[in-house]
């Protein structure tokens, strides 16, 4: 037991990288999700088409294939990003594609009456979206966004396969050195689990914060 605790600092070092990638990729994904989600429904034709292509490609192939492609194939086209940037970029792009669908769905679920009410008050399309529709849709986006954040956290384990020494990578190294497979992997699973719980908890707080003092507006309760 003391020995497995001795492994903890090494694993925590790996966890730090895992969390770094998660947070940076999440920020990128958030921006991409909002931009692509809105563009797909409300941007002029070529932009909407571009957004749709992005979403379909990144949802239609898998995160690991995307990682490999950006890490192994892209340098051959002359673009060398390095493992860390590749990890953040690919995982962000991947989550952003799923997030775009969440944004699109949530905005689509706001009743037309809300658009009409905003228009009748003199708002333009963009103003109505920004002041009236998006704030209502945001609340509905939080639970699925929480799930996506956990999927993202889990996907960061893949970066161990492009040489980054995240939590999973360190578990592999430790296992090879000590052969104490069961303890190491259980410890690692628990660390991931705790990180996921932390995300769930944070998203719950965010949801309550957004929902404070407001019924669901135009959305069905």
């Amino acid at each position: 037991m003391t020995d497995s605790l001795a492994m903890l600092p090494l694993l925590l070092e790996g966890l730090r990288l895992t969390l770094q990638i998660t947070v940076l990729a999440a920020v990128l994904a958030l921006v991409l999700a909002i931009v692509a989600g809105l563009a797909r429904s409300y941007a002029p034709r070529p932009l909407a088409w571009l957004a749709a292509t992005y979403v379909e490609i990144f949802r239609g192939t898998s995160a690991l294939i995307q990682l490999f492609w950006f890490f192994f194939a892209l340098p051959l086209l002359g673009v060398e990003l390095g493992a860390f940037v590749t990890a953040v970029l690919v995982l962000g792009l991947n989550s952003g594609a799923y997030g775009a669908e969440v944004v699109r769905g949530a905005i689509g679920a706001v009743p037309r009456g809300q658009w009409e009410a905003a228009t009748s008050l003199g708002y333009g399309r963009l103003g109505a979206l920004r002041r009236v529709v998006f704030p209502q849709a945001a609340l509905a986006m939080v639970p699925p966004a929480g799930n996506l954040a956990i999927e993202l956290l889990k996907n960061t384990a893949l970066v161990s396969m492009i040489t980054l020494s995240d939590l999973t990578f360190r578990a592999q190294i430790l296992r090879a050195e000590t052969l104490r497979t069961v303890e190491i992997f259980i410890l690692v699973l628990v660390l991931y689990y705790l990180a996921a719980r932390f995300i769930t908890h944070g998203m719950g707080r965010l949801e309550r914060h957004l929902a404070r003092g407001r019924d669901h507006g135009g959305l069905a309760p």
Partner: peptide, 10 residues
Amino acid sequence: STPLLIQLYF
């Protein structure tokens, strides 16, 4: 809540 990759290694 935990990665498939780790479960796979496990």
